[in-house]
């Protein structure tokens, strides 16, 4: 948090209660005793590590195909082997390696889409919350319009017009998923704006830019992080759905959604081909959601749910 003049420091209950502790220490203590947060952090941390270290830990080139070694089952299967721990896909590519590299794509899409939509939504929300009145009315109207557009359908149509690719998916999702950012930051900004320290900053003659950057943004950061995790999860699921429908990430990129789409025709007789990427997606999204819920609980004032 930005240090601020003592006169502007608020005195909410959470800071006042245990006098010896800083807010960060409280958050840490709460975080360590919050089961969901810990599980979420562990899952996300593990997947982020796997994505970063993909070239080191992936046993094979995820694109190297060998059509004479197709559809080898995973190692726990009677016909599986240790050469391919999770087996191979329909073109003989190593499934574990594709899964590891696929985590890069899911994370990349989740982060970039959340970043783009975060910037758009936060800007709109903060402006609406800070200025209120007409600005607020315009923003509300823009948000309502955006909510009225069916997301999947519009994303599909856009992707088909420009041609599906990683970049297009990120942009389309980024430009479609900002509504929750706007709604939440608007509410949070309104709340913060009413506080004494903002009034004091104004009285001290600080311009709106400085007030927004120094007083408002740091104080709505927690709310932003929570929404960002939600939207990351949302973007990852939508990417998977778009790729599943054939208009998202294009082959041969190993996106998890695409792996499910490609494995679909084998699901009756080689069910692991869709189960493995499906479970991976589920675990990642679950982890992100738990992390987000955890952050919300930890940063919430004591006693609130």
């Amino acid at each position: 948090m930005t240090p601020r003049p003592a006169t502007l420091t608020p005195a909410p209950a959470e800071v006042a209660l245990p006098p010896a502790r800083s807010p960060a220490a409280i958050a840490l203590r709460r975080g360590l005793s919050h089961g969901g947060f810990l599980i979420g952090a562990a899952i996300v941390g593990f997947i982020v590590l796997a994505a970063l270290a993909a070239p080191l830990i992936a046993p094979h080139d995820p694109y190297a195909q060998d059509v004479s070694r197709r559809l080898i089952p995973p190692v726990w299967h009677a016909k599986g082997g240790v050469a391919h721990l999770l087996g191979t896909d329909k073109l003989g590519r190593d499934y574990l390696s594709r899964l590891i590299y696929g985590s890069q794509i899911s994370l990349l899409i989740g982060l970039s889409a959340a970043l783009i939509s975060g910037i758009i939504g936060t800007t709109l929300g903060v402006l609406a919350g800070y200025y209120g009145g007409r600005v607020d009315a315009v923003v509300s109207y823009v948000v309502t319009t955006r909510l009225a557009m069916p997301v999947v359908l519009v994303a599909l149509a856009m992707a088909s017009l420009v041609g599906g690719s990683l970049k297009v998916v990120v942009l389309v999702l980024g430009f479609l998923l900002w509504d929750r950012f706007a709604v939440v930051t608007r509410a949070a900004t309104r709340q913060v704006r009413a506080q004494d320290f903002v009034a004091a900053a104004r009285a001290a003659g600080f311009g709106p830019v400085r007030i927004l950057a120094q007083e408002i943004l740091p104080n709505i950061l927690n709310a932003l992080i929570v929404v960002a995790t939600l939207e990351m999860a949302h973007a990852i699921l939508l990417e998977a759905a778009l790729s599943f429908l054939g208009l998202g990430v294009q082959p041969p990129l190993p996106s998890w959604g695409l792996m499910i789409a490609e494995g679909k025709q084998y699901m009756f007789f080689q069910p692991w081909v869709i189960t493995i990427p499906g479970v991976a997606l589920l675990v990642l999204v679950l982890g992100i959601n738990l992390l987000g819920d955890g952050v919300r609980d930890i940063t919430a004032p004591e006693g609130r749910h």
Binding site: Y63, Q65, V67, K90, L91, R93, P251, P252, E262
Partner: peptide
């Protein structure tokens, strides 16, 4: 799709 993807793999 498989045939097309195999071709893509060979081209790669």
């Amino acid at each position: 799709r498989d045939y097309a993807e195999a071709v893509i793999g060979y081209l790669r």
